[in-house]
Design a protein around this nucleic acid. Structure first.
Lengths: 162, 162
DNA sequence: TCTCTTTAGTTAGCACGCTAAGTATAATAA
DNA sequence: TTATTATACTTAGCGTGCTAACTAAAGAGA
């Protein structure tokens, strides 16, 4: 049996979203591997640099839209690489603040060019206006998903009550 | 430190793509869990039903844009659940053909309504035209990524030669 | 034909995001 | 103040996609 090009390229929206995300992250991985980084690690560092040193792990997880449990491993690895440090918060005995180390800051500066290079290459031949539409639609799907999650949660609670 | 809503919602394009893909698949997971399925499993069955029984594992992997190695585990699980079977190809001693079982076919019919329900809910308030733009842009990024992967590969070969 | 290369499948191990369960601290209510 | 609840963190285990290394069969070339 032979599949047509048509059949090979027809992914559903969620399949295509996942696929493109994996492709992008794989390419970024290869660009950043010489710096000793993987996608989730530089992503966390990049975000940390942008929102500012000293936020809690929880705040960083929210900014990355990740579960705290998912971020923990990544931060432990970055700490192992001496790119970030975690210190107990003086204000809240439960919280730990995350800081970039000096080498962490230095690495962020090196990352920037490579991140932008990948971005430029992958967004080639796409109009600004089209990209804006994509961002808007993705935000809308996220919004719908958050509401649907709550509805699913409510469904499950109702089942319990009945 | 307090983060503004603005800061919390600013993900880069690849971060947002991954996030939306995870959200969509998580919601689909919850809808389909009662049928005993996870997202990659129903996705494989759904694709198999669409491109037709009897394709090789390799062909199914290409249609799903997954590596063969990634698909193997999923197919083993589906075979364990007696939803698909794999038979040696009569034409090619290396290949195995994948078939839906009777219960597999039955399950595909049950899946359809749930998949469409999730799709409708998540694409609510999005214009057809906007969705078309998204599909087009994602296809363009995939295309750019494929070309960039080749370029990265060439880079690496050059390094070897030098 | 015989050899070399390519291809389909297989297995093993890594990285990542998730949820669940548990601990310690903070905030709130009685 | 004391008891309850909520929050921040931590750890462990699951499911997934990937690459790497390997086997066996098919195809191509000398």
């Amino acid at each position: 049996m032979t599949l047509t090009q048509e059949q090979l390229r027809q992914l559903s929206v969620p399949e295509r979203l996942g696929r493109v995300a994996r492709q992008w992250q794989a390419i970024a991985d290869k660009e950043l591997a010489p710096l000793g980084l993987t996608y989730p690690r530089w992503s966390a560092m990049w975000k940390l640099a942008r929102i500012g040193d000293g936020v809690s792990q929880k705040q960083l997880a929210e900014a990355l839209e990740l579960e705290l449990g998912s971020l923990m491993r990544t931060l432990a690895q970055l700490e192992e690489q001496e790119l970030v440090t975690r210190k107990a918060s003086p204000d809240d005995g439960r919280a730990k603040q995350v800081f970039l180390t000096n080498s962490g800051h230095a690495l962020v500066r090196k990352m920037e060019a490579k991140i932008l290079k990948v971005r430029r290459a992958l967004l080639a031949n796409i109009e600004d206006e089209e990209l804006e539409t994509v961002k808007k639609v993705l935000a809308m799907i996220s919004y719908n998903a958050n509401h649907m999650s709550e509805a699913q949660q409510a469904d499950r609670n109702n089942e319990d009550e009945v």
